[in-house]
Structures are given as structure tokens and as C-alpha cells.
């Protein structure tokens, strides 16, 4: 079976579970609350406030949703059944990455209009560029979030995911929030994060007993 087909099956499975368990509700609400709270606290003027608030809301909510997604996978050791199937094991990381991206995109699609409204953000003609930068930022969050949520799985330490991954992602937030002129840097780092994440994920899936 080809890698793309296996990936499609796994992503479809993740989305189906998501629709049943609706684990995205919590993070979404958290993101909305964060956007509202920051909108109340910060003056609307500078574009930075709006983009910064948006990035923070998406980051925190996104990481939370990734953590929940991994928790669902770890429940009843369902992940182990996937690890036994070579076709699934080879594409496990990209499939999880794609599913996380869908979650992140959903959160972004909900929160972005809110922030644009709350902070009276005027993006003008750089909308395409900003959207591209935002998309690349989401890929970075998903790449690191997936591998570290797998690393920290189990009990108390999984709650730590945002604390652990946030320092690594702060520069991405900086670049996106300040409106980086060239997406090339973000693209390069996405490549590095995905590559490192994939290798790390594969390493993590092998326990040493």
C-alpha cells in the first residue's frame, strides 16, 4: 500500500475520532477567551497587539489540542496496534502532523476573524503574505507539538507540553507576529523541524525494555 494511501486512512481516522469526541471544543473556547481577554486589556491601535494576541491564542490552544489528540491515541494503547503495521508505522508522523494541522487550521479560522475584529487589524494588501507566514507557523507548531506530545505522554508530564514547546516556538511567533518579509526563513525552519521531529518521533516509538 502506498504511503499516501496509508496516510489518508490514518488522517481520516483521526478526523472521525475528532468529530465523535469533540476534543477541540475546549481549546477553541480557550482561544476565544484568550482573544477576548487580550482584546479587553490591550489597546487596539498597533497591528502588533492584534497579531501578537492572535499568535498566543492559537499557540496555546493549538498545543492543548495536540496534547489531547495524543492522549486519545494513548488511551487503551491504541497506538501500539498502529505500530505493528509497517504501512502505518512508516507514515505515522506525517499522518499525525496532518491531523494536528487540521486542528490548528480550525482554531485559526475561528480565532483570526475574532482578532481582526477586536483589534481592528488592517492587513491591507499583505494578506496573502501574512496568510502564508501564518500557515508556515502552524506547520512549525504542529511539527514540534506532535513529537513532544509523544515524548511527554503519560500522566502528569503531558500537561507540560505548552511549557516545553513554547520556548522553541517563540521565535516562530515573533517572526509571524511581526510580519516577516520573507517566508523563506520560516520554510527552512519548518523543514528542519519536520525532519528533526520525524526522526525523533521514530526514535520515541521504539521503547527500550
Amino acid at each position: 500500500m502506498s504511503g499516501t494511501r496509508a496516510m489518508a486512512i490514518l488522517v481520516a481516522k483521526d478526523l472521525r475520532i475528532e468529530m465523535r469526541a469533540i476534543s477541540l471544543a475546549g481549546p477553541l473556547i480557550l482561544a476565544i477567551i484568550a482573544a477576548c481577554a487580550l482584546g479587553l486589556a490591550l489597546p487596539a491601535g498597533p497591528l502588533r497587539h492584534g497579531s501578537g494576541a492572535l499568535c498566543m491564542a492559537v499557540l496555546v490552544a493549538g498545543l492543548l489540542s495536540i496534547e489531547r489528540g495524543m492522549a486519545l491515541e494513548r488511551q487503551d494503547d491504541a497506538l501500539a496496534s498502529l505500530l505493528l503495521i509497517p504501512a502505518a508505522r512508516a507514515v505515522l508522523y506525517p499522518a499525525k502532523l496532518a491531523a494536528c494541522l487540521v486542528h490548528l487550521a480550525t482554531i485559526s479560522l475561528v480565532v483570526t476573524p475574532l482578532c481582526i475584529v477586536f483589534f481592528s487589524m488592517d492587513l491591507g494588501d499583505s494578506l496573502g503574505r501574512v496568510a502564508l507566514a501564518g500557515g508556515l507557523g502552524l506547520v512549525a507548531i504542529a511539527a514540534l507539538g506532535t513529537v513532544f506530545s509523544a515524548a511527554l505522554a503519560g500522566g502528569a508530564s503531558s500537561r507540560l507540553l505548552p511549557a516545553v514547546v513554547a520556548p522553541l516556538l517563540l521565535p516562530v511567533v515573533l517572526l509571524v507576529a511581526r510580519g516577516t518579509p520573507s517566508p523563506g526563513v520560516l520554510l527552512a525552519f519548518d523543514a528542519v523541524f519536520v525532519a528533526a521531529g520525524w526522526i525523533g518521533f521514530d526514535a520515541l516509538m521504539e521503547e527500550v525494555a
Partner: peptide, 25 residues
């Protein structure tokens, strides 16, 4: 050990990104 190894590797690879991102400030 495994988690910290992965984190250590990713953190170092992150350093240039941090540098590039703060150049904008």
C-alpha cells in the same frame, strides 16, 4: 534520556531561528 536528547537537538537547531527572528526587533 530520549526526550531530552530530542529536545537538545531541536533546541540547538532553533538557535539560528531565534537569531533571525530577533533581528527584526
Amino acid at each position: 534520556a530520549l526526550v531530552c536528547a530530542i529536545y537538545g537537538v531541536v533546541a540547538f537547531l532553533d538557535v539560528p531561528l531565534v537569531y533571525l527572528s530577533v533581528k527584526l526587533l
